[in-house]
Computed example of a mutant assay.
Amino acid sequence: MDWNRVEGNWKQVKGKVKEKWGQLTDDDLDQIAGRQDQLEGKIQERYGVAKDQVRQDVEEWYGSQKW
């Protein structure tokens, strides 16, 4: 699944995102609406992690999903 499909299936995917990054609120997830850059920004904001590390974490999470 490419990231565009994540955006299209965001309602189903956001539960998996919340399992991984539990500090993200439902409002955060609604605001992100499946956009990868928004997801990375919110993770960086909530967890205080460097941008490069967040990008790597998101890519690893994405690759580990059984789509």
Rank of each mutant, 00 (worst) to 15 (best):
M1T: 09
M1R: 13
M1Q: 13
D2N: 10
D2P: 04
D2E: 10
W3M: 02
W3E: 06
W3S: 04
N4I: 07
N4C: 05
N4L: 07
N4H: 06
N4R: 11
N4M: 07
N4K: 06
R5Y: 04
V6R: 09
E7L: 04
E7K: 11
G8W: 01
G8D: 04
G8L: 06
G8H: 03
N9R: 10
N9C: 07
N9D: 09
Q12C: 00
Q12W: 05
Q12K: 00
K14F: 00
G15C: 03
G15M: 01
G15F: 04
K16Q: 06
K16E: 04
K16A: 06
K16I: 11
V17N: 13
V17I: 12
K18T: 00
E19I: 02
E19W: 00
K20D: 00
K20E: 06
K20W: 02
K20F: 01
W21V: 12
G22C: 03
G22W: 03
Q23N: 00
Q23C: 00
L24H: 03
T25W: 04
T25L: 02
T25Y: 02
D26C: 07
D26T: 06
D26R: 04
D27R: 10
D28P: 03
D28C: 04
D28I: 02
D30W: 01
Q31A: 09
Q31R: 01
I32R: 11
I32S: 03
I32T: 12
A33H: 02
A33E: 02
G34N: 02
G34H: 09
R35E: 08
R35G: 03
R35S: 07
R35I: 03
R35K: 14
Q36M: 15
Q36T: 10
Q36W: 00
Q36K: 13
Q36I: 09
D37S: 14
D37T: 15
D37N: 15
Q38A: 11
Q38P: 08
Q38I: 00
L39P: 08
L39W: 01
E40D: 08
E40Q: 14
E40H: 10
E40G: 07
G41Q: 04
K42W: 12
I43V: 15
I43Y: 08
I43W: 04
I43N: 13
Q44F: 07
Q44P: 12
Q44S: 14
E45M: 10
E45R: 14
R46H: 13
Y47A: 14
Y47V: 13
G48D: 05
G48C: 11
V49N: 12
A50T: 08
A50S: 13
K51W: 07
K51N: 15
D52W: 14
Q53P: 05
Q53H: 05
Q53R: 08
V54G: 13
V54N: 14
R55P: 06
R55G: 09
Q56G: 11
Q56D: 10
D57F: 08
D57Q: 15
V58H: 00
V58I: 14
E59G: 05
E59L: 08
W61F: 12
W61C: 03
Y62T: 06
G63F: 05
S64K: 14
Q65W: 08
Q65K: 14
Q65D: 09
K66I: 02
K66R: 15
K66L: 05
W67I: 08
W67F: 11
